[in-house]
Design a protein around this nucleic acid. Structure first.
Length: 496
RNA sequence: CGGGGCGUAGCGCAGUCCGGUAGCGCGUCUGGUUUGGGACCAGAAGGUCCCGGGUUCAAAUCCCGGCGCCCCGACCA
């Protein structure tokens, strides 16, 4: 049965979101403020994301490495914009020991004042500084370039307000860091990785994205230019699902990452950094979920197919078990992540609801009638139920999964387009942001003041200055807000 | 950090205004009957009522002070 899509833009959406996470057993709030416990089912989604992305990074010539969790406080101070961007949200290690006080309860232990560090250590909010400090040691010659590294790790940002997956105090991510001889090389790398993110999100997450550049006020602290992929959620708020930065020579100067050029001169390297995080899981939930719970795109579904056996008598149970076991083996053999739910004492309907809440894309029901007819009943999480003949079962299952994957992508893209408004005027823009919301395309004068005023009045920000492919056929001449000459088309939305 | 809501059994909640035996639903356990869209009957287990003080013969309930969680705002991936 096709589920009604959830109510957009209400507080209901937040409640629904938390409920999906709970019902699907993805994550929990931890006893530590703002932190998240990712449960096995949720973590499996992350592992699948990691596997896919890691393969794409390696295919583009990158290698994995690991850098420390702790960064000397002084490192953070070396790049002026970077300090400003992160200083107000870092966790610090200032002491290295506790000591017993002899008192009872919570006071039984205290920070040992004698263990105070001379220089506090910052728990990494991102690793540019420590990585470029190392690059300075590793890079001497143009022959050492490019350096193309990635690391999978956790980072900590002490945000005021948190939300499972979307903005947690600690989160898991991947951060790529590269060094290049020329600006062109760095620009090409930043662009290439943005393309990798786009491909991953479209093909794996079934998440249509808009690519483009951030304005000065939205760019990464310390970057020359920031590019981003932006998606539209079902409540018509935008989610920044990944970023790629051309850092220019800003960090190279701050950390003295110099190399000898082929011509014999000395020059600073050009850096890029790029990252995606567990936030993408939040995006997946908000993009595809419905009133029945999570809808996992097959490519990232921890369980792609669940087999639910149905029986009455012992004799039927035996026959059904034989068939269910056989088809599990057959489907698993074809590389599909499949689970056979043979729990006794639960009615089939109860199992359906449970697996739907967990987002399993395809359910195969196997009962006495199917045994007799030489078929199984296949119910799609996206709606529709039809028998599948046992011949070619695994091929048909694979085809169904592929269709579901594509259907999710196309449905999401249609929703995005239906909630996009092009060539907006100021009045339309205000109504749009007060009302349904979505992506608003319009002319932008390039002024940060104008940008700030729009944000203040409508809570909308420029998500990207879209790449050519996403721009409107007719380019705006005037800023939709102030009426001055437009320097670029911009896409606005209220955002997570 | 500002505004709002909340904290009682594993989960969801009632009880708090107006102090007087700790309750309900779901889940769990036992037994039986069930099983093609959330099963039913019978029985059972399960609690520092967030923490610390105070008032009172008596506090989940009233008073004071903490802590934590959720939602909205500012900030952010």
């Amino acid at each position: 049965m096709p589920a009604e899509k959830i109510t957009p833009r209400a507080q209901d959406f937040s409640e629904w979101y938390n409920d999906v996470i709970a019902q699907a057993e993805l994550a929990d709030h931890s006893p530590v403020r703002g932190c998240m416990v990712i449960r096995p089912h949720g973590y499996r989604i992350w592992e699948l994301m990691q596997g896919a992305l890691d393969g794409m990074f390696k295919a583009t010539g990158h290698k994995n490495a690991y850098f420390p969790l702790f960064i000397p406080q002084s490192f953070l101070a070396k790049e002026a914009e970077h300090v400003e961007g992160f200083a107000k949200e870092v966790a610090l290690v200032t002491h290295t020991r506790l000591k017993a006080t002899g008192k009872a309860g919570a006071e039984a232990i205290m920070v040992d004042p004698d263990s105070k560090l001379e220089e506090p250590l910052v728990v990494r909010p991102t690793s540019e500084t420590i990585i470029y400090a190392m690059f300075a040691k590793w890079i001497q010659s143009y022959r050492d370039l490019p350096v193309l590294l990635n690391q999978w790790c956790n980072v900590v940002r002490w945000e005021m307000r948190t939300r499972l997956f979307l903005r947690t105090t600690e989160f898991l991510w991947q951060e790529g860091h590269t060094a290049h001889a020329t600006e062109q090389d760095a620009e090409a790398e930043a662009r290439q990785m943005l393309g990798v993110y786009r491909k991953f999100q479209e093909e794996w997450v079934a998440m249509p994205v808009i690519t483009g550049a951030k304005t000065a006020s939205e760019k990464f602290a310390g970057a020359l230019r920031t590019y981003a992929v932006e998606a539209l959620m079902q409540d018509n708020k935008a989610l920044q699902a990944g970023t790629s930065h051309n850092l220019g020579q800003n960090f190279a100067r701050a950390f003295n990452v110099q190399y000898q050029t082929a011509a014999g001169g000395l020059d600073y390297v050009w850096n890029t950094s790029w990252g995606v995080s567990t936030r993408m899981i939040g995006g997946l939930i908000m993009l595809h979920g419905d009133d029945h719970g999570l809808v996992c795109p097959p490519m990232l579904a921890p369980i792609q197919v669940v087999i639910v056996p149905i029986w009455k008598s012992d004799e039927e149970k035996e026959q059904v078990a034989a068939l269910a076991t056989r088809i599990r083996a057959e489907v698993a053999q074809a590389g599909v992540r499949v689970e056979l739910d043979f729990r006794d004492g639960l009615k089939p309907g109860a199992k359906y609801f449970e697996w739907e809440a967990k987002g399993v894309p395809l359910r195969l029901e196997v009962g006495p009638r199917d045994v007799a007819a030489g078929q199984v009943m296949a119910a799609r999480r996206t709606g529709g139920k039809a028998p599948i003949k046992l011949e070619d079962l695994s091929a048909r299952v694979a085809a169904a999964l592929q269709e579901i994957q594509l259907l999710l992508f196309h449905a999401a893209r249609e929703r995005r387009e239906a909630n996009s408004l092009r060539g907006v005027t100021k009045a339309q823009f205000i109504d749009f942001m007060k009302g349904p919301g979505g992506f608003a395309y319009g002319g932008f004068c390039g002024s940060a003041d104008c940008e700030a005023e729009i944000k203040k009045e409508t809570a909308a920000t420029i998500r990207v200055l879209p790449d050519a492919e996403f721009r409107s056929p007719e380019q705006p001449k005037k800023c939709m807000w102030c009426g001055m000459t437009s320097v670029a088309e911009a896409v606005w939305a209220q955002a997570y």
